[in-house]
Amino acid sequence: GIPATNLSRVAGLEKQLAIELKVKQGAENMIQTYSNGSTKDRKLLLTAQQMLQDSKTKIDIIRMQLRRALQ
């Protein structure tokens, strides 16, 4: 079985993952909103794209940590 310490770690990672998935969803929504907007929305679009990139990276890292914890 999986050690108890790993189980609480997994629960924490799953919570983090859920949050990051919401951030990713929000960033994707912002990108959709701003991509057909005016030029003043360009900065917001770039910010949203950066957020999305960061979020995807975090999600990958969390998933990797989850896999390790579940081994």
Rank of each mutant, 00 (worst) to 15 (best):
G1Y: 05
G1V: 09
I2S: 11
I2Q: 10
P3W: 05
P3V: 07
P3K: 05
P3Q: 08
P3H: 12
P3R: 02
P3T: 05
A4I: 09
T5W: 14
T5V: 11
T5M: 07
N6E: 11
N6T: 11
N6W: 05
L7W: 02
L7H: 15
L7N: 12
L7R: 10
L7P: 14
S8C: 15
R9Y: 15
R9G: 11
V10M: 03
V10A: 03
V10I: 15
A11Q: 09
A11Y: 08
A11W: 04
G12M: 15
G12N: 13
G12S: 13
L13P: 00
E14F: 15
K15L: 10
K15V: 04
K15E: 05
L17R: 01
L17S: 00
L17H: 01
L17Q: 00
A18V: 05
A18L: 09
A18K: 09
I19M: 11
I19G: 05
I19T: 05
E20N: 03
E20H: 07
L21W: 05
L21Q: 03
K22H: 06
K22Y: 04
K22M: 08
V23P: 00
V23W: 03
V23K: 13
V23D: 01
K24S: 08
K24P: 00
K24W: 06
Q25V: 06
Q25G: 02
Q25N: 06
G26E: 14
A27W: 14
A27P: 00
A27T: 03
A27I: 14
E28V: 10
E28F: 05
M30A: 09
M30H: 04
I31P: 00
I31G: 01
Q32S: 12
Q32R: 11
T33C: 14
T33M: 14
T33H: 06
Y34L: 08
Y34E: 01
Y34G: 01
Y34C: 05
Y34R: 01
Y34V: 03
Y34Q: 02
S35R: 10
S35W: 10
S35L: 13
N36G: 09
N36D: 07
G37V: 05
G37Q: 07
G37R: 04
G37F: 03
S38D: 14
S38N: 08
S38F: 09
T39P: 09
T39E: 10
K40Q: 12
K40P: 09
K40D: 05
D41G: 03
D41K: 02
R42K: 07
R42F: 07
K43M: 08
K43Q: 10
K43E: 13
L44Q: 12
L44D: 03
L44G: 07
L44I: 05
L44V: 05
L45M: 05
L45E: 02
L45G: 01
L45R: 02
L46V: 10
L46Q: 10
L46F: 06
T47V: 09
T47K: 14
T47A: 13
A48L: 10
A48T: 02
Q49I: 14
Q49T: 06
Q50D: 03
M51S: 05
M51G: 02
M51T: 07
M51C: 07
M51I: 08
L52A: 02
L52N: 01
L52G: 00
Q53F: 08
Q53C: 08
Q53D: 08
Q53S: 09
Q53L: 09
Q53Y: 08
D54V: 15
D54I: 07
S55N: 02
S55Y: 01
S55K: 00
S55I: 10
K56M: 11
K56F: 05
T57I: 14
T57F: 06
T57L: 09
T57V: 11
T57M: 13
K58N: 03
K58P: 00
I59A: 02
I59Y: 01
D60T: 14
I61Y: 09
I62Y: 02
I62C: 01
I62W: 01
I62Q: 00
R63Y: 15
R63L: 10
R63S: 05
R63F: 09
M64Y: 10
M64N: 09
Q65A: 11
Q65Y: 07
Q65W: 09
L66T: 00
L66E: 00
L66K: 01
L66W: 01
R67C: 14
R68E: 14
R68K: 05
A69C: 08
A69G: 02
A69D: 03
Q71N: 07
Q71A: 12
